[in-house]
Design a protein around this nucleic acid. Structure first.
Lengths: 221, 221
DNA sequence: AAATAAATTTAGGCAAATCTAAATTTATTT
DNA sequence: AAATAAATTTAGATTTGCCTAAATTTATTT
């Protein structure tokens, strides 16, 4: 595997994340994501196309090739392993790990990362609940689990709600819980199986067992 | 503390190491150390002088200011803590850690490094026996110990020889042992207190108790 | 003390990564 | 289907870090 500059890696990673939403990524989208200017994007797109990491025709948007996706998954693997290390071993809180991992992810020594993976016990998800690609770039497809199964202090997003009655929707609306909303379980009470959860990083609220049983979240998004 | 580029950090670090030998560092010395050209050195020296990290008068060589030394010790702290981490936690061998640490040392997040230090139990020397500066940049002065006290598999350098007779000099010359030579103890034999040591990473040789007792090495150089 | 050699600096150039402003292409309106 | 707006690309600069080649300064010889 060749080496890429920090700048190239940041572009590749951003394209990978944007691709998941639309199929095609546009110049302006990417400029907004990277907080840079459209002209800079065009420059780099030419370079990445020349390196065969990108399919790109002027004015038509772009997406990663198979090679480009492999590179992206390598960067994401490094990022998420470091996030896990920071949270698990150095006791960083979940909201502090991303920024530090943004720097560490660019140290691309395969042996380092594979040994780190082993040392951490081959974790499957990072502290935000996102899946960690393995040494071959294989990434687990997002699994849905009931929020009652979500480990305490893991961030996830609401994937679906099994009951579709107007009664549950009213309640969800009132509690500001929607598909895609970020949730974090803070406490589970054995007495009545109620739980305290945070919605979009707001102060914790309580939900009943009946409600919790109907909420499914991504475990590995 | 301000941030410096990877390139600036590599210059600062190299000057710090060269300074220990002479007092003043020259352009050619530094170019050789960094495998670059004298003209590049001059360019960077102007930049580091403007940042007040360096005392530099054209044609007169240079040395770090107090500020520059502080920066250097920060880099060396990061480098050696990562080396310790790689050897201790990820089970890298001593000869593999340097290269990887060369990259990791440039991630300069204070909280990361201080938490890493704590996680590792505040180690005082790296796997080569070099001292690790603390969070305030304080570095232990090199202690001399007899090679008989040096732990097995720790790299050190010869600091002095207590006997100055022509007989011992002949023997040292023959075994290629000199001041500054790198040594590593591989085995100690209780029967006659002889030991097997490696000199400059060459195949192990045997030295007698009488010789060993006269060789002093840096422990934390 | 001149002459020569060695070390160092200056001058000018190049590639990467960014930017602004102008030109071009594509999309949207009337 | 023109006209206008939006998105994108091109052209030309700038900064950083590096280089080569020429000029300059310092050190060493004869």
């Amino acid at each position: 595997m060749l080496n890429y500059t920090t700048s190239e890696e940041n572009y590749i990673k951003a394209i990978y994340h944007l691709q998941k939403v639309d199929g095609m990524v546009t110049t302006n989208e990417l400029a907004a994501e990277l907080q840079s200017k459209p002209a800079s994007i065009t420059d780099m797109m030419k370079k990445l196309k020349a390196k065969k990491l990108l399919n790109y025709q002027p004015y038509q948007g772009f997406r990663l090739t198979a090679d480009g996706t492999k590179v992206a998954l390598g960067i994401i693997r490094r990022h998420r392993l470091w996030e896990f290390f920071l949270a698990e071993k150095l006791k960083f809180t979940w909201d502090e790990v991303h920024e530090v991992a943004e720097d560490l992810e660019h140290v691309s020594n395969k042996k380092l990362i594979d040994k780190l993976d082993e040392y951490l016990g081959f974790p499957r998800v990072d502290p935000h609940g996102d899946p960690i690609p393995d040494a071959n770039g294989k990434i687990e497809i997002s699994k849905k689990i009931c929020i009652t199964e979500l480990p305490v202090n893991t961030i996830s997003t609401v994937a679906s709600v099994s009951d579709h009655s107007s009664e549950i929707l009213e309640l969800l609306e009132h509690k500001k819980i929607a598909i895609g909303t970020k949730v974090e379980v803070k406490k589970k009470f054995e007495f009545d199986n109620s739980m305290e959860i945070k919605i979009n990083r707001q102060p914790a609220i309580t939900i009943s067992e009946q409600l919790a049983k109907n909420i499914f979240v991504n475990y590995g998004s």
